[in-house]
Amino acid sequence: MTNEQILSEIREANMTYLMLAQNLIRQNKAEALFRLGMSEESAEIIAALSPAQVMRIASTNMLLCRFRVDDDIVWNLLTNHSVTKVDNDATTKLHASILMAGRFAEAV
């Protein structure tokens, strides 16, 4: 992958992310805040962006969406590295969902 390719892929990903975020927020704001895991202020700013602004913001060398899981327990549950007594894909995924929903409630 050349440097140019990397930059264009990042731009694509940013564009897709911002456009999806805009759609979600405009369709149902409360649900979108949950799905995107962002504050109401950020959501309002993103929803108000014009297509030209989206293009400009997307053209950077950094990804705009950040990784949502940043602790070991949720990570292990998602990848199913058995840290608990439970050894079932669906159930560990469910466990991770409960933890993630709770984490965001703490964060905001």
């Binding site: 409360a30 949950f34 504050s39 109401e40 969902s97 929903a101 905001v108």
Partner: peptide
């Protein structure tokens, strides 16, 4: 119940919805 309640509490924290609307949104999620 825990999955629902975590989602519900998240929604009531991040937005100023009426309780019953938050219950419906959380239930769908």
């Amino acid at each position: 119940a825990s999955l629902f309640q975590n989602t519900y509490e998240y929604l009531t924290k991040v937005s100023a919805m009426e309780d019953i609307d938050a219950i419906m949104a959380a239930y769908r999620l």
